[in-house]
Design a protein around this nucleic acid. Structure first.
Lengths: 205, 205
DNA sequence: ATATCAACTTGACACCGTCAAGTCCTTCAT
DNA sequence: ATGAAGGACTTGACGGTGTCAAGTTGATAT
C-alpha cells in the first residue's frame, strides 16, 4: 500500500540526499546557473524553503554537491588508474585523461568543486573522498619525484597542467571540447610530462 | 557652469563606459556574485533598466567587461615581458609570473573572461586585445618550439600550466594565494618549463 | 497520554533580470 | 525655424530567486 501523496508529507525520510541528487541533475542539465534552491525543492517535490533547512542556504547546498561531486571525481580517477598502462608513465597519462574526461562529462560539477571560493573554503579540512583523489595523484606522481626533490612540486605541476588544460578545453579555447579527447592534441600536451624526472626503475615498464 | 543634476538627465554622454567601469569596480569589490545590472546602474547613477539598453542584458554586460578586462590582462603581459630577463627562458618565466599576478590582482575579471561559457562564446572572433595577449604568448613560446614541432603544442602546454596554477591558487589549493608569488612555490612549479625543447641558440642569453 | 522537538510548510520581503510603454532630448530634413 | 524621427533613458510591472519568521505536522521519549 503506497502512502498518501495528495497531502504534503512532513518526513521525507531521505530528503537531504534527494535534494543533492536533484541539484546534480539540474547542474548536468542546465549548468551552474540552473542550480537553484527552489528548483531543487520542486524537483524533489517539497516546499521551496525545505533545502535551506538542510543546507543553511545556497552555499551549503553547493558544498554538499561538491562533496558528492568529489566522490564521482574520485571514481573517475580510480577507474583511470585501473585502465591505464601499468608503467609509471602510463599511469600518469591515464589519470590525466581521467581528469579531462570527468571535466567534459561533468562540467557543472567541476565548476562547483573548484568554483569561485574554491574547494578549500567549501569543505574545510577536506573529507575522505577529497583525500582519496589527492592520494591517487600523489601515488601516480611519486615515481617522478627526483631524489631529494619535493613531491609536492611534481604534484602541483601535474595538477596545474591538467586542471588548466581541462578548463581551457571547456572554455572552448582549444576548439570543440569533445574533440580534444579524440584527436591527438591532448596527448601532445601531456607529452610535456614525458620530460619529468626519470621514473623509479622499479616501476618502469 | 555645471549642468543641473537635480533632474534626471537623459543623455549621459558616456554611459556605456561608465557602466563597464562600475561593473569592474563591483567585480573587484565583491566578486562575480556582486556583478549585477541594477547595482551597475545605481553606481553610475542611472535607472535600473539603463544597462540593458546598452548591453542587451547581463550576458552582454559580462561580454563588455571581458573585453575591457582583456585589455588589462594584455597590459600585464606586456609589462611582464618588458620587465623580464631578456633570455628566452627569462621571458617565458616573466609572462607566467604576469599571468599569475593578474589573476591574484583581478580574480573577478579572470572569472568573467574565462568563466563558464568561456571567452570563445563571449567575444566571437576575438578582438584586438585578445589577439595581442595571445600574440605575446606565441612570441615568448616560439624559441621553444622544436624543429618540425607544432608551435600550438608548446603554447597549449604553457597556457594550461599557468592557467591551472593560477586558478588553483585562487581556489586556495596551494595555500594562501598571495604567498604563492612570494615564496618559491611558483618558481618550482614553472620549473617544469625548463624541460621544454632547447631554445633557439640565437635567442639564448 | 502528553511533552518535546526536528522536519517541513506557509507567507512575506528585498533583490534580481527582463520586458513594454512612456518621456526626454538630439538631430536632421524641410 | 519648425517639425518629424529616433536614440537615450525612465517608469512600472512581472516572475523568479535567496532568506527569514512563524506556523504545522508527526515521530519519539517519557
Amino acid at each position: 500500500m503506497s502512502r498518501d501523496t495528495s497531502k504534503p508529507r512532513h518526513h521525507h525520510g531521505d530528503l537531504r540526499n534527494a535534494l543533492v541528487q536533484a541539484g546534480i541533475d539540474l547542474l548536468e542539465d542546465g549548468g551552474i546557473e540552473a542550480l537553484t534552491l527552489r528548483k531543487c525543492a520542486a524537483r524533489a517535490g517539497v516546499s521551496h524553503a525545505a533545502p535551506a533547512h538542510h543546507f543553511g542556504g545556497l552555499p551549503g547546498l553547493r558544498a554538499a554537491i561538491a562533496e558528492e561531486g568529489f566522490r564521482i571525481f574520485s571514481s573517475y580517477m580510480q577507474e583511470a588508474r585501473r585502465q591505464g598502462d601499468p608503467s609509471a608513465r602510463g599511469q600518469l597519462k591515464s589519470i590525466c585523461r581521467g581528469y579531462l574526461r570527468f571535466g567534459l562529462d561533468h562540467a557543472g560539477i567541476l565548476t562547483v568543486i573548484f568554483g569561485n571560493q574554491g574547494l578549500a573554503s567549501l569543505v574545510p579540512g577536506r573529507n575522505q573522498e577529497t583525500a582519496d583523489a589527492y592520494q591517487i595523484l600523489r601515488e601516480v606522481c611519486a615515481p617522478f619525484v627526483p631524489e631529494g626533490g619535493h613531491c609536492r612540486v611534481i604534484e602541483f605541476q601535474v595538477w596545474s597542467l591538467i586542471h588548466g588544460f581541462t578548463l581551457l578545453c571547456l572554455a572552448g579555447e582549444f576548439g570543440p571540447p569533445r574533440q580534444a579527447l579524440e584527436t591527438g592534441v591532448f596527448d601532445q600536451v601531456i607529452a610535456l610530462l614525458e620530460h619529468l624526472g626519470p621514473p623509479d626503475p622499479a616501476l618502469r615498464s
